[in-house]
């Protein structure tokens, strides 16, 4: 029974429930697995937890990351120099769980490495290792229905992305099918640092929030603590990736400082229900 409990437990869902009760905005941090090294990724996840990060999106590198801008392309290429396997990423999460880290961790990655690993096997192994969710940016709900079913069975949250170009009808379907939270892609384009946020962001997010009780997190282009604060004000949480990855190039300490600042900015916004 105890084993079954661990398997069915989902830290992401628990975190979301807590956040709702505490009216806390969610800060989801994207890190490229193995950049600049697996040890560095481990350290960053642990310090992120201490800085108040709510969710880790662990990006498994891919040779052809076509939704990503130059920063994440670079970190992926650097990580790939060490030929990391999905198994390595699972080992890291296992290690973190053994160390008592209970931060929700979501696997982010392009479909091919998962497909190559074996989709059904992946869902089971990822859950056992301690992953709580899955984001596959190049997998629309129309494809790979087997993987979807398996994720549901294993209680691994498969998060859907909604884009500025998504039609209303499709948005309803994506929001309904999304598990855990809804990932709103703030802009037309690839990931990366932007000077300003798109003008229709608030109205788009509002529309999605009216459709669902699931939290709506906004990613792509959020890079400064101030932007994060603004986005947190109009949504349920913020996803930051490229800005932190860019900071890692200057040094881990520098990145950790930025994570702390963004975390403070996000959490300074009290949750206001619609």
């Amino acid at each position: 029974m105890k084993e079954l409990d661990t398997l069915m437990k989902n830290r992401l869902e628990e975190k979301i429930k807590q956040a709702r009760q505490k009216r806390r905005k969610l800060f989801c941090l994207f890190l490229t697995f193995g950049y600049p090294s697996i040890a560095a990724t481990e350290r960053l996840i642990l310090s992120a937890r201490d800085s108040g990060v709510d969710i880790i999106e662990l990006g498994f590198p891919f040779s052809d990351p076509l939704a990503d801008g130059p920063t994440i392309q670079y970190s992926s290429q650097e990580s790939l120099k060490h030929n990391p396997s999905i198994r390595d990423a699972m080992r890291l999460v296992e290690r973190l769980r053994r160390k008592g880290c209970e931060l929700p961790i979501v696997y982010f990655g392009y479909l091919n490495p998962v497909f190559s690993y074996g989709e059904i096997k992946f869902a089971g192994d990822a859950k056992t290792a301690g992953f709580d969710g899955l984001i596959l940016p190049d997998l629309p709900p129309e494809e790979e229905t087997l993987l979807r079913r398996e994720c549901k069975r294993k209680n691994l949250c498969l998060v859907n992305l909604v884009a500025p170009t998504t039609s209303d009808e499709r948005m309803k379907m994506l929001v309904r099918e999304s598990q855990g939270f809804v990932y709103y892609v703030s802009l037309r384009g690839v990931t990366g640092v932007r000077r300003s946020l798109p003008s229709d962001l608030a109205s788009r997010v509002k529309k999605i929030r009216k459709m669902t009780s699931k939290p709506v997190l906004v990613g792509f282009g959020v890079s400064t603590p101030n932007q994060a604060k603004l986005v947190a004000r109009i949504s349920d949480g913020v996803i930051v990736g490229s800005a932190v990855i860019r900071e890692i190039q200057k040094g881990i300490l520098s990145a950790e400082r930025l994570i702390k600042r963004i975390s403070r900015a996000v959490h300074s916004e009290p949750h206001k229900p619609l």
């Binding site: 076509l66 939704a67 479909l111 940016p137 190049d138 997998l139 629309p140 129309e142 494809e143 859907n160 992305l161 909604v162 884009a163 500025p164 170009t165 998504t166 039609s167 499709r170 994506l174 892609v185 037309r188 384009g189």
Partner: peptide
């Protein structure tokens, strides 16, 4: 075949 694209491109 199929259509394995980021959500932004589905509409296009």
């Amino acid at each position: 075949g199929g259509r394995y694209v980021p959500e932004t491109l589905v509409k296009a």
